[in-house]
Design a protein around this nucleic acid. Structure first.
Lengths: 201, 201, 201, 201
DNA sequence: AATGAATGAGAGTTCATTCAT
DNA sequence: CATGAATGAACTCTCATTCAT
């Protein structure tokens, strides 16, 4: 099977990545064995290693991919007109997380939690995850600038700083959804909305 | 049942747990080997297995312990008089997380992230972590009730619901502190403060 | 059977053999992978297997070739007139070994040592190497006969037997040159010259 | 089985080393698998790795050991009184090599050839082998000094240099014994003896 | 004919756990 | 009762070879 098209190669890579993500969603990075990924991908050991030269490289690709899924969600929020309020953004993002998680063959939020844990002990993964988070937060910062123009947010606030806090809402939601299993996007956003005194702070 | 022996046993258990947490903070649960824990504890393999009958049991104990450290932080917040505003609570909790993490021989936030990941794939750990989160949130709910009395928060809001959102602030902070390494308690709380429009929502 | 194609085939075979010898000089037979040989030859896997149907066949060819290089050296000694003395032969052979080793793109003496080791465990290689050694020794025997005529060597000695000893000088030189790296042709020959008592034995 | 005596440990190490040498004598270093060594030693994989932390470490120990066997042979030659002539030394050393090879459960000369080949590509092994050769040659140099006193060798010759040549006799013998299989100690020594013209050089 | 992606058995090594001492 | 040497299944990864294209 020589001289395979780039498209075909990309498809194969995707096939392996998907098989691996299914494993990781179930067992985490370190309880996922290459044998499971290989069996799940329907390829041979050698073939898999032709696309990912080590388990660490595969882990890196999965970590990166698991976070990139949020991109589209944020893009959608950014596209909304008029710009939604912060509470509305919280509700939108958490809803999209739930929708995607339940629609996909893999619950990507489970993979994301593995990626966080791996980022703590593996510098390569940390860099990859940090870059993704940076990107997400900069998109959020754009939304925040729009919100400032719309008068939703104090115009004097630093958008980058606010973006960190806004981004920080998601991990807590993901975690409680997976672990205590008692949060819904609507309630979670409502809770944030209530976190202010009736008038001012 | 000599009293001294029981104390001694407890001390030994603690010794092992500490050695294990140091390992887990560095390498996560699954890259931590029993051999490392054994070496770190200064005991023999057999002795360690006398206190924790399997690695899974040790993991469970560590997961539980890593979350219990937040208890004291919340207790302290609860004890404050007058009751702090939500933004102030956010600042207090994140500051305490940083302080403890930097003072301790182990950065417990690193262990906590491992515990989250493990909770996703291991039902026993999930239950343990869920119970801990429940407890923390109920303490937070008490604070919220006090805040409602003090007029900081809409009196009509469900304290349990608000507690979920308030608790949810911490994972995002912990993660960004460990991964992007660009958040401070003051800025993070300020970001939350800005997340409301100048007047109402 | 087009002539050009045959030449072309021979050229290709040589190309592969050379690439393989470079690998073997560096890593020995069993750490040399077919993938390295294939990459070094600039051909495809399929093409290489068209010329050598297995790694074992390639090893056999390399072992044979590595020893055949000494042929020319001995031919040159044989051509000398008047016939050189035994000590002189030792010096000539060792000098030629060094010269060739340093001139060639591959240090063939490194390959030869691999061939010896392989001959010990692989009957096919042993036969090939034994045949080559036989040939070399018979050429040396011719030189010895000439030396007997010239009065350099006891006329009553069996030339075949003396040839074995004379041939036996070379492995020790090659090995010390590669391993202790502290022998020179001149010193080595001088050492042999000294190995006889001032008068008789 | 805790707190095992050092003697016991040494015995176990020897047990593994012997099993490994048997494998290496048959298959060389790189066709010898750890699984074979493990099976041959009668221990488990883990136990073997408790004594040799990698295959490379085992190879190093075998290479060293295979050469150390010659020590005793040279010691015996050194002990002879009166000091034997160079030709006699050649005969003695080669005889001892044959005797030991045929008496032992492993033909160590087969292992030695593997060690030479490995020394060419592996710096650690090269150093170990070079050190052993150095030691053997310095013992030989002592014998040569005695031979000079006894008038067997030119008193003006450098003993170190002559020792290199004398040492160099052995590899050629070992190789021809294993590969062409047509050399005997007596004939080989006689061949050397003949390598001089009837009177002087 | 030539290619090189794919195969898969088998390599070296690790590590949670046990149990003879 | 404590010890730590021993176990062995399971892990990640390699590589000689094939064969669909």
């Amino acid at each position: 099977m020589p001289k395979v098209t780039d498209e075909h190669r990309e498809q194969r890579r995707e096939q392996i990545l998907m098989a691996a993500m299914i494993c990781v969603a179930e067992e985490g990075f370190h309880k996922t064995t290459m044998a499971h990924v290989i069996a799940g991908s329907g390829l041979s050991a050698g073939a898999v290693y032709g696309y990912f030269s080590s388990k660490d490289e595969l882990i890196l690709a999965i970590a990166d991919r698991s976070l990139s899924y949020l991109d589209q969600a944020i893009d959608e929020v950014q596209a909304r007109d008029p710009v939604p309020s912060p509470v509305e953004v919280t509700r939108l993002l958490t809803s999209m997380i739930v929708e995607r998680a339940e629609a996909a063959p893999v619950d990507l939020t489970r993979v994301v939690v593995s990626a966080w844990a791996e980022a703590v002990r593996n510098e390569d993964v940390r860099h990859a995850v940090a870059s993704r988070i940076d990107l997400l937060r900069s998109k959020l910062a754009d939304v925040i600038i729009a919100q400032q123009s719309a008068g939703h947010i104090d115009a004097g606030a630093d958008p980058e700083m606010v973006a960190k806090s806004l981004f920080g809402v998601m991990p807590g939601f993901v975690l409680q959804r997976l672990i205590t299993r008692d949060v819904t996007p609507a309630d979670y956003a409502a809770g944030y909305a209530s976190l202010r005194r009736p008038s001012g702070d």
